[in-house]
Simulated scan of single mutants.
Amino acid sequence: MTVSRGPAPHSGPESQPGGAIPGTTGDAADVLTALGRSWTWILGSAVATLVPGILVLVWPDETLHVLAVLIGLYLLVTGVFRFVALFAREDHGERLAGLFLAVLYVLAGVLCLRNPLQTIAALSLIVGVLWLVSGILMLYPVIAARDLPHRGFVLAAALLGIVAGIVVLALPTESALALTRLLGLWLVLLGLAETAVAFAWRAALHRAGVTGP
Rank of each mutant, 00 (worst) to 15 (best):
L107M: 12
G209M: 04
V129L: 14
L70V: 14
L189C: 12
V56H: 04
R82F: 00
R89T: 09
L192T: 06
G191H: 07
L107V: 14
A156E: 13
T2M: 11
Y105S: 08
L101E: 13
R202E: 08
G209P: 03
A193K: 01
T119E: 04
R207K: 15
W59K: 11
A145Q: 15
V3P: 01
V110K: 02
R114Y: 08
A170D: 09
G79P: 02
L75N: 01
P17Y: 08
A145P: 00
T24H: 15
P116W: 12
D30R: 06
T78V: 09
R207V: 04
L185M: 11
A193S: 11
V47A: 15
L155G: 05
F153N: 05
G79V: 02
E94I: 02
T24Q: 15
L125D: 07
I166T: 09
Y105R: 03
L101T: 12
W131L: 10
L32I: 03
A8Q: 09
L96K: 14
V77P: 02
G44D: 07
A158R: 01
F100P: 00
V51K: 01
G152L: 13
L130C: 07
A68L: 12
P7C: 08
G19D: 06
G12M: 07
G26W: 12
I126Q: 05
P52R: 03
P7D: 09
L139K: 05
T119I: 00
V127G: 02
I42C: 05
S38H: 02
T211R: 13
P52E: 05
P60K: 01
P9L: 10
L160C: 08
S4T: 13
